[in-house]
Amino acid sequence: MYLVADISIEICAAKSCKLCTQYCPEANTILYSEEMGKDQGFKYGSAYVAVDRCKGCAQCVWVCDNMAKNNAIKMIMIDQLPKAALTDNITYGEKSTTAVLASPVVG
């Protein structure tokens, strides 16, 4: 198994700085959803990780901890994630994306 980034929606949706989306070296990997936070009653949307594209470098963790000072991102073994976003389940909209969360490990 391997590590992937996991963003805490509770912390992220309270600040919504979007720094991790700008600092991830992989394109289309950390995405932003307006609905993911607002649906749960938070003020803003939240960033989330398309775990099938994440290479586990943890650059976003450093950015979130040291630049944004939010501590919202943790590295987690992919089989420990109950549900996660995968590229196939992500829909792009006009100004935001939406993701249907599914089990990241097949079989």
Binding site: N28, K55, Y92
Partner: peptide, 22 residues
């Protein structure tokens, strides 16, 4: 706006965490 639209760059074989990729 990144994270809200599809970027032109796709998956690639460069090392994890590479600043050049960023």
């Amino acid at each position: 706006q990144v994270g809200s639209f599809k970027e032109v760059l796709e998956e690639h074989p460069m090392c994890a965490g590479c600043a050049m990729t960023l």
